[in-house]
Simulated assay, not measured.
Amino acid sequence: MRFTLRQLEVFAAVARLESVTRAAEFLALSQSAASTSLTELERQSDCQLFDRVGKRLRLNALGRQLLPQAMALLNQAREIEDLLDGKEGFGSLAVGNYLATLLIGAFMQRHPQSRVRLHVQNTVHIVQQVANHELDLGLIEGCCQHPDVELQPWVEDELVVFCAPQHPLAQRGRASLDELAGEAWILREQGSGTRLTFDQAMRHHRPALNIRLELEHTEAIKRAVESSLGIGCISRLALRDAFRRGSLVPVETPELDLKRQFCFLWHKQKLHTAAMREFLEQCRALTAGVQRSDEIVLPPIA
């Protein structure tokens, strides 16, 4: 065999980071060691895997073809290493919403030795990271059209408009579109699945909304609405505890369709590790017969 796992590891890191320097830092190698490793891989194979664009290294056609296979081999090597060490390896997992965070807890209780890396980001970033092999698995709200990504619908979710208990809409419990148009809004940022669902629901009958704040995190939106800075619209599941406590109040909006779909996604050429398969199976078992995410009963934390 003319290549080593270290060479493939350096190649994969350079492919993701587009820089030998950043790849060396990520792998805790010297820059000369990383550069030598990549040079040797190309020399031994008598091929070029990157186009040099200024200071950046970008995968050429052959490099893009090699990357998924290199990642699959590296994942298998890590599984072998974990098996020999008596551990359960999970790799990395992207988390795009509140629900997945809860599911990770249940998984880690069953597998306390597993290693999980969580990324709470919006849909656009999750899709891009999965497509770039930076993440093994993503959970997003809605759909994506990326040609390298495979999507699997999971369970239906619903957004809900909400406000602080002292807000006038809290007394009535529902609002018309005209009433909503007159409110100050605290919304997710552009590029998030939540914002896309909200914009689509409002597209046919939305006057210009007064969007007071755009925030990247669900918890920040909840805190802002609790502080009476405006009204919001996020997943009903993420608001479940706040509604029970009475710190926030739902506002029904019969004129709006705020339903959406949670979907898992992974790279089409991604090798599914044993832990990935088990996590997906656990999620499917948890939602068997369930129509909406807010019907899911999560196992108690020990």
Rank of each mutant, 00 (worst) to 15 (best):
L83N: 05
E158C: 12
P168V: 03
E88R: 11
G173Y: 04
G138K: 00
Q109Y: 07
G142Y: 11
F162A: 06
Q129F: 00
V95E: 01
L74A: 04
P168I: 07
L169R: 14
V127H: 07
Q145Y: 09
L74F: 02
S114H: 04
G91F: 01
L103D: 00
A106N: 07
V124D: 10
Q129E: 01
C143S: 07
A77F: 00
E158S: 15
D82S: 10
F90W: 07
F90N: 06
G173N: 06
H133K: 01
G173E: 06
H111I: 09
Q145E: 10
E158I: 11
V116Y: 01
G142D: 07
R115Q: 12
V95R: 01
L159S: 09
Q129C: 02
S176Y: 03
A175S: 07
D157S: 14
W154I: 03
E88N: 11
H146C: 05
F162Y: 15
V116D: 02
G105F: 04
I126A: 02
P147Q: 13
L99C: 03
D85Y: 10
G173V: 08
G96V: 02
L139C: 07
P112C: 14
H167T: 05
V130D: 00
D85Q: 15
L151W: 07
V160F: 09
D136R: 00
P153K: 07
T101Y: 07
K87R: 11
A170D: 13
E141H: 09
G89K: 02
G91A: 03
L83A: 14
Y98C: 09
V124Q: 11
H119L: 14
A170N: 14
A175W: 01
Q113Y: 10
Q128M: 03
V130K: 00
H146T: 06
T123Y: 03
D157T: 13
L151N: 05
Q171F: 07
L169D: 05
A164Q: 06
N75E: 13
C163V: 10
F107Q: 00
R172F: 08
Q76N: 12
S92V: 15
L169G: 14
L159Y: 12
S114K: 08
V149G: 06
Q166R: 09
H125E: 15
N132E: 10
N122G: 14
Q145A: 12
A94T: 10
G173D: 13
V120R: 09
N132A: 15
A77E: 03
M108W: 06
D136P: 10
G142K: 03
R78N: 05
V124A: 12
L93R: 01
E156C: 15
G142L: 02
E150L: 10
V161N: 01
L84C: 14
D148A: 13
Q121C: 08
T123Q: 12
R117V: 04
H167D: 04
V155C: 10
M108D: 05
H133G: 04
A94Q: 05
E150P: 02
N132C: 03
Q166G: 12
L99S: 04
Q121N: 12
L74W: 01
A106P: 10
D82Q: 04
P112W: 14
G105E: 09
L135G: 08
E141C: 09
R117Q: 04
L159D: 03
L84K: 14
A106D: 13
A170W: 15
R78H: 09
G173R: 12
H146K: 04
